[in-house]
Nucleic acid binder design. Structure first.
Lengths: 209, 209
DNA sequence: GACATAAAAGCACGATCGTTCGTGCGGTGA
DNA sequence: TCACCGCACGAACGATCGTGCTTTTATGTC
């Protein structure tokens, strides 16, 4: 019986598991989630192939656990810091800024984990794809919801289509990430910031006076 | 001596090579350019592994030839039809429309070939990456150039930053492609079209009268 | 210090990877 | 008719893949 199947696990095992998954999440943004090999990952962190493998029942379980870890890292780094902001428009701006900062600081060496993995699994049905698309939709829904709140608070034009505005914002974030990684040039992150700023400016309600 | 190394090739060989490369280009947008295996590709088109391999000296040569073929397909389907249009703004609009149509018609089953492959090789140095980035830059430069021409023709606001405008347009195209493939929903292509239309409308010079 | 158990390693398996080699078929020109 | 050559084939290679089984090493409790 593998360690993964038996529910038992001590503190040592949890630490190892965490080490494995953090390395896997980083490697996945460079070599892809499928491109990672058990042996390669094991060598990376100085473990034996079988010792690493014992923590998971299969490669797919490792991939799913890796996604979960990446999501925790992403949430802690990008989403949670913005949740104390009351004003919805400010929170939206902070969210976009945090994302681009997250990419720029190379929290994951290959840029946004979910952009990377969803491009890899977009045409590969299965639990991995489902898990990734769920996270993506959650992100898009969050952006759109903040736009609706900003409209309700009368700081964004209520005639704007929230879904379209969210699409446009996400577009800038995605291409900013993609081009930054591809060309290793922060100029594209700055373009994303400019595009976001003027899009939101155009959607803002003109305050009288 | 392999067929690839000897320059000699008859009409039969060229036809086979073309068959291989077209299948490879399609498969690459689904399984990735690295995910393609020689055996898998050979089985797909009913050839032996070694028979296929003889057309190329290595897998990397196959990848590079695949990119070249994909570029030809893309140019013929997206770029060339728009080159007869004189007005730069109209040509820009036609180019964007042609791209989204190209994606929607699934000329490649996994959407835009270069979006797919550049996401895969963005962190993998080598000739393949270089070839892909070159094509990407060529596309971006084309879009930006059309914007400049439209500004010179006084149909787009000369105060607009051409690079930024090109970035925004490319953003919509990329996310439109990505989400269409990921969710198999044309709604995202429509959002891209809306975003493009209103961005260009905002950048247009208001005609007096 | 002995014992139970978690955690990692050792080793080996079948499959598949890219790659190479020798061979054979079919058409073309001497 | 015969030699030649483009083209594709089958077989096999070393390497690496994911995956198991067995054994050894740590860890922690009495």
């Amino acid at each position: 019986m593998t360690l993964a199947q038996s529910g038992k696990q001590g503190p040592k095992g949890q630490r190892s598991r965490e080490t494995i998954l953090r390395a896997a999440a980083s490697l996945a943004t460079v070599d892809g989630l499928e491109g990672i090999s058990i042996g390669n990952l094991a060598a990376q962190i100085g473990m034996s192939k079988s010792g690493l493998y014992a923590h998971f029942g299969s490669k797919e379980e490792l991939q799913l656990a890796t996604i979960e870890t990446a999501e925790e890292i992403f949430n802690a780094d990008v989403i949670e810091p913005t949740e104390t902001i009351g004003d919805p428009l400010e929170r939206l701006q902070a969210l976009c800024a945090a994302f681009l900062s997250h990419v720029e600081r190379r929290v994951f060496p290959g840029g946004c984990f979910f952009a990377s993995v969803s491009a890899e699994f977009d045409t590969q049905p299965g639990p991995v794809r489902d898990r990734v698309t769920a996270t993506q939709q959650q992100w898009a829904a969050r952006v759109e919801q903040l736009i609706r709140e900003a409209q309700a608070a009368e700081v964004l034009d209520p005639d704007e289509d929230p879904a379209l505005l969210a699409f446009e914002l996400d577009s800038y974030l995605l291409l900013g990430n993609t081009n930054f990684v591809l060309y290793d040039d922060t100029a594209y992150l700055h373009q994303a910031r400019q595009a976001i700023a003027r899009l939101l400016e155009r959607a803002r309600i003109d305050k009288p006076g």
